[in-house]
Write a protein that binds this DNA or RNA. Structure first.
Lengths: 131, 131
DNA sequence: GATATATTTGCAACGTCGTTGCATAAGACA
DNA sequence: TGTCTTATGCAACGACGTTGCAAATATATC
């Protein structure tokens, strides 16, 4: 069974061509993708359908939204951690998901943290080596 | 001299009614604001003018953008730290700027970090006390 | 203080993006 | 296979960020 099918089954989501295709694209591209990028990778599918597919995936917990960008980006969820670390390279623009460290948060009295979104902006290894 | 005027002078920005007003609004509201919220607070000024004012402030380093929201939010810069910590309350929706801790980032080889944006999502003290 | 120059303002308008409604097509289940 | 549920594609909307341009305003110079 394909990896895509296995994922859909794991999260209890109906298998359709669009959905299998979206997962394949995510598996192929290792960085976080915008809706537009997905459209570009699978032009035979409708924009709205991809949009709704992402919604369904998001609700089911298959993917994560990257916070920190004007246009939304998504990537397959790696683990169930509450800490989400993404790295945005200013040179190539790619957003990669990294393993999140423990964050020593010192929130003021009364504040309750549910999710921690970390976006680190800088230069990725590919781009820093090129110089 | 008003606080607004002092700020404008400090950053070498021309003083105009719009700009002084925008700063006053920021000083009054302690949380991060969207363009729309600013419009609401100063309806006698044009939407685009406020937009361009924010642009100018942003370029001059007067304000920071909060990353992590679909609609952009801005707040007066507190210090020159590279770590930006904002807290979004899921109940009331307000975004407050908190003092940022040291982040023990363990980036892979070759990654260079310039800015660290932290968005903590949860419940703020006001909303958690209400229950 | 008056004039010339550089910036800012307000208005109109556009493009992109996220989103919804609805009729049709396709998956699930008996 | 037939029925029911869910997904798809198309059209279209609204919000938001953005630009161009002419008029108004701030700053510099005399």
């Amino acid at each position: 069974m394909s990896q895509a099918l296995a994922l859909l089954e794991k999260y209890g989501i109906r298998s359709t061509p669009t959905r299998r295709r979206v997962i394949d694209v995510f598996l192929k591209c290792q960085h976080a993708l915008t809706l537009q990028q997905l459209e570009g990778e699978m032009p035979e599918y409708d924009r709205v359908t991809i949009y709704r597919t992402l919604l369904a995936f998001w609700e089911a917990g298959v993917i994560n939204r990257v916070l920190g960008e004007s246009t939304q980006r998504f990537h397959l969820k790696k683990d169930d951690s509450n800490v989400h670390l993404n790295f945005k390279c200013n040179e190539c623009g790619y957003i990669s998901t990294l393993d999140a460290p423990e964050i020593p948060l010192n929130l003021p009295q009364g504040f309750i943290s549910k999710h921690i979104h970390l976006l680190v902006v800088g230069t990725c290894s590919d781009c820093s080596h090129e110089k």
